[in-house]
Design a binder for these strands. Structure first.
Length: 431
RNA sequence: GGAGAAGUGGCCGAGUGGUCGAAGGCACUCCCCUGCUAAGGGAGCAUGCGGGCAUAAACCUGCAUCGAGGGUUCGAAUCCCUCCUUCUCCGCCA
């Protein structure tokens, strides 16, 4: 959520910055709502003040045994007017809030201006493309050849966009997650957390998935008293982990907070019918190791570079070729102020595919969540949040399969994973 | 699932219709005293949103907030209803 003060003080400026990401801010509507709010709020508070003063008088007079009928009569007339004003105020505030919650974050000043993916900036390439003297297979035929990847059974059990891993492949998948977790906890100073996979609407609102992107989420209705309230399956660990600090005021000394979590992620992929239908690239369920940081506002830029480096370490240690892309203003996500994508080389597709997305959100999420720290002056101040995949486990598995495949259809296991694989050096025809 | 108890500021904890946004304590900040450690005295110290303000801080002021949402009342932390959460006991269970 953007700071309403900023909107009041520099509406045109905010509109211009939002325009760089292709968002049109209805400034006239904001001004109209804001004007109405000011009017109604002032009037409501005036009425409340009068009522409070009169009530106080009544109490005071009664305690002295005086007659209060005169004041009572005066206050009685206030009632209806006040109720009406309060109701009107509630409506205006709700509209204003809805408008505010629908506004995306303003891009950081360093973000390149652009319309789409095509305008993203390549920051660097690391490593080099592997060369093959045979016709490469994609991960689907490799996995099926190894007997460890079974989409048909997954489809029978659940439907399209699910996968089933077996034997060595299932273990490799687990090994990847373990390796990532161990690296981030042992070498990068993150605290591992295990978190709920079903969260409430307030949490989704806090990180910005709600109210705008409900169609991307899996909803689980449940009976709550007389009504229905929804749980939501997390689309990323960012949601539960970041919401750990919702409605909290943490001490200055606790910053930066760095958490890592391995969770499944669930996405309805509502808008992507027909895209990436083959293989494990785009699934309703996939595992991800997620890095989350809560930092002092002064440190968030440096923290993003650091977090990006942590994610890159995984690819480097696995020996995978990748590039880092800085997303342009038109391509960054709703809540993000700045985003780097890490794209891994996939030889069978002859292209780079996103395997991690590292973003800084400034105070955008913190403001929605009222997540604060006590600053040096002792005053509560919004903290800054960041997160990034480190990495998407399913896509990493795809990358390992495709990049380390051999002519005979076997796959060499990267050395750093072998301790997690019982010393196994390659996957071949496992049952 | 059944029975009971409880949810108050950073923390502990008083408060059952009226100068209560809230006693007292701890923690914290400032000052005084004290030649270490410790102790003593005084003051300050919730959050959000408005207005003063055309701008940052400070300050003054109004409103709201005592788990959440409704209700009763001139007035609710306090009474009523619904819900949520936590704790204890019983049952069930990975």
């Amino acid at each position: 959520m953007l700071d309403i003060q900023t909107l009041r003080n520099d509406l045109a400026g905010v509109a211009a910055r939002l325009a760089t990401r292709g968002f049109v801010l209805d400034t006239a509507r904001f001004e109209q709502l804001e004007g109405e709010r000011k009017l109604v709020q002032t009037r409501t508070q005036e009425l409340q003040a009068r009522r409070n003063a009169a009530s106080k008088q009544i109490g005071f007079a009664k305690s002295k045994g005086e007659d209060v009928t005169a004041i009572m009569a005066e206050v009685a007339n206030l009632g209806d007017e006040l109720k009406q004003a309060e109701a009107q105020l509630a409506v205006v505030l709700a509209e204003l809030q809805a408008l505010l919650e629908g506004l995306p974050n303003t891009p950081h000043e360093s973000v390149p201006v652009g319309k789409s993916e095509a305008d993203n900036e390549e920051v660097r390439k690391v490593g080099s493309k592997p060369s093959f003297d045979f016709a490469v297979q994609d991960h689907v035929s490799l996995g099926e050849g190894l007997g460890g990847l079974d989409f048909e059974t997954a489809a029978k059990i659940s439907g399209a966009r699910f996968s089933l891993l077996k034997g060595g492949l299932a273990r490799l998948h687990r090994a990847l997650a373990q390796f990532m977790l161990d690296t981030h906890t042992d070498q990068h100073g993150y605290t591992e957390v295990y978190v709920p996979y079903l969260v409430n609407a307030a949490s989704m609102r806090g990180t910005g998935q709600l109210p705008k992107f409900e169609e991307d989420l899996f909803k689980v209705p449940r009976q709550m008293g007389e009504g229905i309230e929804n749980f939501y399956l997390i689309p990323t660990a960012e949601v539960p982990v970041t919401n750990m600090v919702r409605d909290e005021i943490v001490p200055l000394e606790s910053l930066p907070m760095k958490f890592v979590a391995h969770t499944p992620c669930f996405r309805s992929e509502a808008g992507s019918a027909g895209r990436d239908t083959r293989g494990m690239i785009r699934q309703h369920q996939f595992d991800k190791v997620e890095l989350v940081q809560m930092v002092h506002p002064d440190d968030s830029s440096a923290a993003l570079e650091q977090l990006l480096g942590h994610a890159e370490t995984i690819l480097q240690q696995l020996g995978l070729h990748y590039r880092v892309v800085k997303l342009c203003s038109g391509d960054i996500g709703f809540s993000a102020a700045m985003t780097y994508d890490i794209e891994v080389w996939l030889p069978a597709q002859d292209t780079y595919r996103e395997i991690s997305s590292c973003s800084s959100f400034g105070a955008f999420q913190a403001r929605r969540m009222q997540a604060r720290f006590r600053n040096a002056q002792g005053k509560p101040e919004l903290l800054h949040t960041l997160n990034g995949s480190g990495l998407a486990v399913g896509r990493t598995l795809v990358a390992v399969l495709e990049n380390f495949q051999q002519a005979d259809g076997s796959v060499v296991i990267p050395e750093v994973l072998r301790p997690y694989m019982g010393g196994l050096e390659s996957l071949r025809g496992l049952k």
